[in-house]
Simulated scan of single mutants.
Amino acid sequence: MARYTGPKSKIARKFGEAIFGDDKAFEKKSYPPGQHGNNRRRGKKSEYAIQLMEKQKAKYTYGILEKQFRNLFEKANRSKGVTGEVLLQMCESRLDNVVYRMGLSPSRSGARQLVSHRHITVNGEIVNIPSYALKPGDVIGVREKSKSVQAIQDSLDNNSSVYEWITWNTEKKEGTYVAIPERMQIPENIKEQLIVELYSK
């Protein structure tokens, strides 16, 4: 399974925000990486550079590689609605992202691992494809054999996030993807219009 496995703090520092969640290394050095990172007098970025940076940030945030991301964009571009908004909604409706949002894992990469290791069910069936696109009404749960996995329990105990478009039943260890989230319900700091402009060139 292709995915980014390089240093995460370095990427977070490049974008100036902890896109992979809590990060002690990022807190210590919140300036860009490299020997000139602390020197703030960097040249003015071109329009293309700003757009590219935003696309890279979105890709790293959701853990999606270039080909997959472009395919998502083209699908969003063909659908009704605002392209950038639809693109983010598609990223949010991925199974690995919803598992992360439900608090089953403290990170998206951890959520991806739970899915690919067959710990997660959708409507009662095991699904091990992290990019699986959920539809409103789908029920996501922890497989019966996996309900005792300590990492899942620890993550749920430490999770305090609540999203209006997801419900969660702690006793059953299952939740429902109630609706496609509105843009204002997506907390990620991504300027999706810049991504649309980049791909529309």
Rank of each mutant, 00 (worst) to 15 (best):
residue 13 R to T: 07
residue 168 W to D: 01
residue 90 M to S: 01
residue 124 G to S: 09
residue 75 K to T: 11
residue 128 N to I: 04
residue 52 L to M: 08
residue 48 Y to M: 14
residue 97 N to K: 04
residue 64 I to R: 00
residue 194 L to K: 13
residue 84 G to R: 01
residue 66 E to S: 12
residue 131 S to R: 08
residue 68 Q to N: 10
residue 199 Y to S: 04
residue 171 E to T: 10
residue 179 A to L: 12
residue 67 K to P: 00
residue 91 C to W: 02
residue 154 D to G: 02
residue 79 S to R: 09
residue 15 F to T: 07
residue 141 G to N: 03
residue 39 N to M: 13
residue 152 I to V: 14
residue 106 P to S: 15
residue 50 I to S: 04
residue 110 G to F: 05
residue 37 G to P: 01
residue 67 K to Q: 05
residue 7 P to C: 14
residue 54 E to V: 00
residue 66 E to Y: 01
residue 4 Y to L: 10
residue 115 V to Q: 03
residue 110 G to V: 00
residue 82 V to M: 13
residue 43 G to F: 08
residue 176 T to S: 14
residue 161 S to F: 09
residue 148 S to N: 10
residue 64 I to W: 00
residue 85 E to P: 02
residue 99 V to S: 14
residue 157 D to R: 06
residue 8 K to N: 11
residue 188 E to D: 15
residue 120 I to G: 03
residue 168 W to I: 05
residue 105 S to Y: 03
residue 159 N to Q: 09
residue 12 A to S: 15
residue 107 S to Y: 03
residue 97 N to L: 03
residue 198 L to R: 01
residue 69 F to A: 08
residue 184 M to H: 05
residue 49 A to R: 04
residue 152 I to G: 01
residue 96 D to L: 06
residue 7 P to N: 14
residue 132 Y to L: 11
residue 12 A to H: 03
residue 49 A to W: 01
residue 140 I to F: 00
residue 112 R to W: 02
residue 24 K to A: 15
residue 157 D to Y: 02
residue 122 V to I: 07
residue 151 A to C: 10
residue 143 R to Q: 11
residue 192 E to K: 06
residue 72 L to F: 12
residue 182 E to S: 15
residue 111 A to Q: 04
residue 125 E to G: 04
residue 121 T to F: 08
residue 100 Y to C: 11
residue 196 V to A: 04
residue 163 Y to G: 05
residue 160 S to F: 08
residue 17 E to K: 12
residue 169 N to H: 05
residue 66 E to N: 01
residue 200 S to C: 12
residue 117 H to E: 11
residue 173 K to H: 07
residue 183 R to D: 14
residue 4 Y to N: 03
residue 178 V to D: 14
residue 52 L to Q: 04
residue 59 K to E: 14
residue 99 V to K: 00
residue 9 S to Y: 03
residue 150 Q to T: 09
residue 11 I to S: 13
residue 173 K to W: 07
residue 132 Y to H: 09
residue 12 A to M: 12
residue 140 I to W: 00
residue 113 Q to M: 10
residue 134 L to A: 11
residue 125 E to D: 10
residue 12 A to N: 08
residue 129 I to F: 04
residue 131 S to Q: 10
residue 199 Y to C: 07
residue 118 R to C: 09
residue 54 E to F: 02
residue 63 G to H: 03
residue 112 R to K: 10
residue 31 Y to H: 10
residue 74 E to H: 06
residue 85 E to K: 10
residue 113 Q to P: 02
residue 195 I to T: 01
residue 86 V to Y: 00
residue 163 Y to M: 11
residue 182 E to A: 15
residue 9 S to R: 03
residue 190 I to Y: 06
residue 136 P to A: 13
residue 1 M to V: 07
residue 44 K to Q: 13
residue 156 L to Y: 02
residue 166 I to N: 01
residue 132 Y to K: 06
residue 129 I to M: 14
residue 144 E to M: 11
residue 53 M to C: 12
residue 1 M to D: 07
residue 112 R to G: 09
residue 130 P to H: 08
residue 127 V to N: 05
residue 125 E to P: 00
residue 20 F to L: 06
residue 126 I to T: 12
residue 175 G to S: 04
residue 12 A to F: 08
residue 139 V to N: 08
residue 76 A to L: 05
residue 81 G to W: 07
residue 23 D to N: 09
residue 143 R to F: 08
residue 178 V to M: 12
residue 80 K to T: 12
